[in-house]
Design a protein around this nucleic acid. Structure first.
Length: 318
DNA sequence: AAGACGAAAGTGGTTGA
DNA sequence: TCAACAACTTTCGTCTT
């Protein structure tokens, strides 16, 4: 029993989501792997679309479109150009160059111009910060291999953080890292705190603190970590089939229904259900292999999967 | 010999007084 | 602010395949 439950349903759901069919085998059994930004045929493994992928450092070769998109969030990377082109000052007197009073219409225009000049000046004070932050964001996101969209979200979060002046007294690096973590959670492309901490010069503790601050001060809706989101990434690292991954997802789903997921490490849960699923499908992996990709210990995998089997009444011959 | 198992002690974070 | 607490980790000896 249960060996292939609901696989069909998963299929139709995917079909509804993506119009794609595999050009190799014609199957509509397409898996969307957000982590890698790929659409993959789960039957033959053909990568159908990898356009969502973030190619890491290469993206620095800006297209003009990309440059304009980036200028929305950041500033030029050079420290020297900040004031260039902005050095004209608008006089505060409402007179023209000859000392004549301005017409009301003209005055209104000048008023708007002044306003914008002030605004741009405020911006330029942020620029130094942003310039540094964005280059750090570049580095971090390419090292972590996160997709473009998530990076953009990170930038938006960071900007909000600046506007609320949350950066003061904290390191830029830490706040960038926290923004990235938040964006990953938001976009359901989970990275663990540890993974991010390892790539930045920020300790796990500090990163967690900053993240919580960001969470509290800017009210961003961030979905609670879902173990299922880890499945595709871990699954690919373990070379598990799509079938096994779906099975793991279903086990997690069941566990959630039974309410035994609260307070448990989501990565541990993902690891355990993948262990079970792999065995059920006949693609057994050792606890050690799984523990390694999930960054938890074998003991945790063990404890979780014992609990899952017991509570979910899964019968598995180990 | 590698993998799985579980006990015991330690660690960092949350909670409630 | 502090102690209790639950979850997770580390370590290690034993059992199983």
């Amino acid at each position: 029993m249960g060996g292939h439950f609901m696989v069909e349903e998963a299929d139709s759901e995917e079909k509804a989501k993506t119009p794609y069919r595999c050009s190799e085998c014609g199957a509509a059994d397409i898996i969307r792997d957000v982590t890698r930004g790929e659409l993959i045929c789960s039957r033959c493994g053909l990568v159908i679309d990898e356009h969502m992928i973030d190619q890491g450092p290469e993206w620095r070769a800006f297209t003009s479109e990309e440059r304009s998109r980036r200028s929305r969030v950041g500033s030029p990377t050079s420290y020297t150009v900040h004031d260039k082109g902005l050095s004209t000052m608008i006089d505060w007197r409402n007179c023209d160059a000859y000392g004549k009073k301005l017409t009301p219409r003209r005055r209104a225009q000048i008023y708007r111009l002044r306003k914008w000049q002030i605004r741009t000046r405020v911006h330029s004070s942020m620029d130094r910060n942003l310039a540094y932050a964005m280059s750090e964001l570049d580095r971090l996101s390419s090292q972590l291999g996160i997709p473009h969209g998530v990076k953009e979200s990170s930038a938006v979060i960071y900007r909000k953080a600046i506007e609320k002046s949350l950066i003061r007294g904290r390191s830029i690096e830490a706040m960038v890292a926290a923004s990235v973590y938040g964006a990953c959670r938001m976009r359901k492309v989970p990275r663990t705190l540890d993974e991010i901490a390892k790539q930045s010069r920020v300790g796990r503790k500090e990163l967690g603190r900053c993240y919580r601050l960001v969470l509290r001060e800017l009210d961003i809706e961030i979905p609670i970590a879902n173990p299922i989101d880890f499945v595709p990434r871990f699954g690919n690292e373990l070379h598990l089939s799509g079938k096994a991954q779906r099975m793991a997802a279903q086990i997690i789903e069941k566990a959630k229904e039974m309410g035994i997921t609260a307070g448990k490490d989501p990565t541990g849960l993902a690891a355990a259900s993948m262990y079970i699923a792999a065995i059920m499908i006949g693609e057994r992996r050792t606890q050690r292999e799984i523990a390694e990709v999930a960054h938890v210990t074998e003991v945790t995998v063990r404890n979780r999967y014992k609990e899952l089997i017991k509570k979910l009444k899964l019968e598995v011959e180990i």
